[in-house]
Amino acid sequence: MLNEKFILFRIHRFRDKSAYAKLYERYHKNILDFASFKMPRKQDAEEVASEVFLRGWEYATSNRVDNIKALFYRIARNLIADFYRQRKVEDSLDELADVAADQEIEERIDLSESANKLIAKIRALKGDMSEVCVMHYINELSVKEIADILDKSPNNIRVILHRAKKALNK
């Protein structure tokens, strides 16, 4: 954590690109996974994930950041929302996720059948459940970290996780 703070200090004070590369190394897989579950195609997810790190750089070099992980996720959520808004879907992010789940989503031929089934199940989860489920089980974020990112209480997140687990077990 201290190390990450030092990296952020370097980025903010000296626009240190090598320091930012370390952050990228640490979070790029998670952000890409997160975007993959929200975006209809793999290429769209890649674009969103790249854009997250570009905007993260711009923000971190001009502002003091305390929690870069939360910042990356927030940027990702906003970009995903913008993506669907551009498709003329005028709804909230949670509902947009549902819309995404209902859309024709290409099956990943590079993944096993069981993986594709699980992805489909996660995408089919309603409301915040899908997002929270990915953050917790795929990205391995703690309940508190998810609560910070989504501006919800840890208890609220636990309830959502419990419901998601129940829905996935059906």
Binding site: K17, Y20, A21, Y24, H28, K29, L32, D33, S36, K42, E46, A49, S50, F53, L54, W57, R108, D110, L111, S112, S114, A115, L118, I119, Y137, I138, E140
Partner: peptide, 28 residues
């Protein structure tokens, strides 16, 4: 298992490399 498959797939098809190229070029 899903997480491992996703990472392996992204690595295999060069998704991480493409992303980094885009990001690093813009930052440079």
């Amino acid at each position: 298992s899903l997480q491992a498959e996703l990472h392996a797939s992204s690595k295999r098809d060069g998704a991480y490399d493409r992303m980094w190229k885009r990001v690093s070029t813009a930052i440079e």
